[in-house]
Design a binder for these strands. Sequence first.
DNA 1: ATGGTTTTTACTGCGTC
DNA 2: GACGCGGTAAAAACCAT
Length: 326
Amino acid sequence: MTDTTTRRYARESEEQTKEQSSESEKEHVDCPECGGKLTSDAEHGETVCRECGLVVEEDEIDPGPEWRAFDSREKDKKSRVGAPTTNMMHDKGLSTNIGWQDKDAYGNALSSRQREKMQRLRTWNERFRTRDSKERNLKQALGEIDRMASALGLPENVRETASVIYRRALEDDLLPGRSIEGVATSALYAAARQAGTPRSLDELTNVSRVEKDEIARTYRYVVRELELEIRPADPESYVPRFASDLNLSEEVERRARKLLQNAKEQGVHSGKSPVGLAAAAVYAASLLTNEKVTQSEVSEVANISEVTIRNRYHELLEAEEHIPDR
DNA sequence: ATGGTTTTTACTGCGTC
DNA sequence: GACGCGGTAAAAACCAT
């Protein structure tokens, strides 16, 4: 019963994210809602409370580079001249759009002759824009990704990542023989995991038009072909969602995290389903903090059987005893 | 396909409100 | 008596080979 043959949810290699300790904020204001620490995130233009998730400021001005990128190291950082490009539109938002109003640049109405001309231009422009099959393919896939991401409450950056993954899959000719839907779903699944906001295969299946098996199969294929590096989901990343679904306090959440970290250090969890671990931790934490929730409630939101919760949470508590330290 | 794991299903017994 | 919980055995699902 050691971990010799349990590779299913392989251990994470080393510390996967020690960012907890090295959080360097410049802001030192406290959250108006709960008094927690604020973290500003220039990339997404938000200032968020780490404790309660309150978004304090949105649409801040990006302090990133503008003109001065003489250095070739900066080649990746796009200067902010021109409209931002986005991977979420099939042509990265760079295509021409011809306005629908029949007005010239001064707002004057066009002559009938010119109106006809414009109509023809619009037609052709549209044809070029979605010219070949790949473009049309992308258009559809990105629409799907967007739809599913919304349904699952996944943030924008995940959609972006998913879009990028899909794009790569398309470029590497991974599509033939596979459904657009399937690959799109897989891309989203992969993106969500990479971003540390995983959604289970079941959840994906609920919003996708594709069967679970196909998603899983396609996912594996895409990951292998694209050599995406995706580590097993960290149980902790499920905790906040479960906790909030169950209306549990942050105290419980913290406790659950601790349990998981403890277990991690002892390698108790290896080959076990991360979701199951997370669910068990939440349950155990709710007991320890006298904010009781029932096993069936947890199993409900986590989509995990009660039996599994029982087994896991025994293990968690046991691990806690072996190293009662800390 | 197979074998070794984990998870789920189904069922049973116990204590409490 | 319903409910929450614990445990067990057998079936199903899963993954690597």
